[in-house]
Design a protein around this nucleic acid. Structure first.
Lengths: 226, 226
DNA sequence: GCGACGCAATTTGAATACAAAATACAGTTA
DNA sequence: TAACTGTATTTTGTATTCAAATTGCGTCGC
């Protein structure tokens, strides 16, 4: 078995249908192809995904635990509506977790992780300059994901991610204005710097404020609609 | 329909099997009748509860999302083992949420809620004096639940409760020493006072410290075992 | 005797079938 | 015509069945 370029030899990954369905449905909800408030038609979606109701229902129940859908007994599931009240409710919780992430990441990140985040940041900056929204969003997620990972606390990342979906969905609808985009870049610049200096309290504060500013932008967008 | 003593006339509550099962299984895990590390025998437990595998599996998957059980594809579910590492991981997250709960409760609680928490506290104190462990535990949970409620943020309470189960289980095993019990009472006394004065930063700090002390006690107990 | 292999039994994942409840709709009556 | 009632249809909740993977055990070979 001494072959050149031997692969890492990890266990092959087996994904239960329910997990794939959770991911697919969550993406549809976050991106709005399953609009807020929309009733979830079990039969139709099972048809679409080519699965039976059993794993599909398991997935829906998991999303309900995450707060992305509401299940009413005997009346089916519906995508949780986006309300300002809900966002205001999620914000302080996620804010506390973002601050903690900053605190831990500044103290625990390896130098390599910091370097990687800086690299992602620079890459994102060039996407900003090219006004490439899709790539920007993707890198943005990657950076926040890398921060969670750098904090080295899986419970923290899972909890924060799960709450984050509820905001991401609103942010996805609210289209990024030019001014907000510029501000977001500046904020990223600032907290990347704080991470580099391993200034824990500062990074914590900046991440919480970054979230607060995101929320403020969503608030504006929601107000505009009404 | 003008009857004396008319009941509040709420919708009658219908509990899906999966929800009852989640509660039952969670209690078994927290109380240790499903010991940490134990493999979950689907067929046997379905037999016990008198339900089929479908709702049972839904319940197990929900508990997996909560972190109380681990599901390995094609190899079934097992109760998550209690490890010091896991507790240390949950602690900072729950700590941040407890602090936030204190912050919000001090600011948002109604006077009636504060009065109720004080009443619960006094009742708990008498249980302590009578050394009635069972009643003490129950009131303890009631107080922390009332604090979450007073904070007025359902997302916060759901998240904190869900993480709390993972610690409660460890605390349940580690038997309460006399010194720890006395200290816990003093801590409760202090934060009840802070709530009464609506001192948000103090309440936040005290609740986090209370959690920290709980964890320290569990740490000791775990070390004793080894 | 010890270990590898192959088969049977068990267990898990997913699909289907059945029961109960909700919704839609038509007929009836005021 | 408008509202109510009863029935048919659809949808949801749970049970059962089927297929695939894993585990346990016995046999064979060394």
């Amino acid at each position: 078995m001494n072959m050149p370029e031997a692969p890492p030899l990890r266990p092959i990954e087996r994904v239960p249908l329910r997990a794939s369905l959770v991911d697919a449905l969550r993406q549809m909800i976050v991106e709005g192809s399953l609009p807020a408030g929309e009733k979830i038609n079990e039969r139709a979606l099972c048809e679409v995904f080519g699965v039976s109701r059993t794993p599909f229902r398991e997935a829906v129940n998991l999303l309900a635990a995450e707060g992305l859908v509401n299940v009413t007994p005997h009346r089916g599931a519906a995508v949780t509506p986006i309300t300002l009240a809900e966002l205001e409710e999620v914000f302080p919780v996620l804010g506390a977790l973002e601050a903690l992430t900053g605190e831990l990441a500044a103290r625990m990140a390896t130098d390599a992780q910091i370097a990687e985040i800086e690299a992602l940041h620079r890459e994102m900056m060039s996407c900003y300059e090219a006004r490439d929204r899709a790539a920007y969003f993707q890198l943005n997620e990657a950076i926040h994901g890398a921060l969670y990972k750098a904090a080295g606390n899986p419970t923290l990342s899972r909890t924060a991610l799960s709450l984050g979906f509820r905001l991401r969905r609103a942010r996805y609808q609210a289209n990024l204005t030019e001014t907000r985009w510029a501000a977001a870049m500046a904020e990223h610049e600032a907290f990347t710097e704080a991470l580099k200096k391993r200034d824990a309290p500062l990074l914590a504060r900046l991440l919480r404020e970054h979230l607060e500013n995101k929320l403020a932008a969503v608030r504006l967008a929601l107000a505009d609609e009404a």
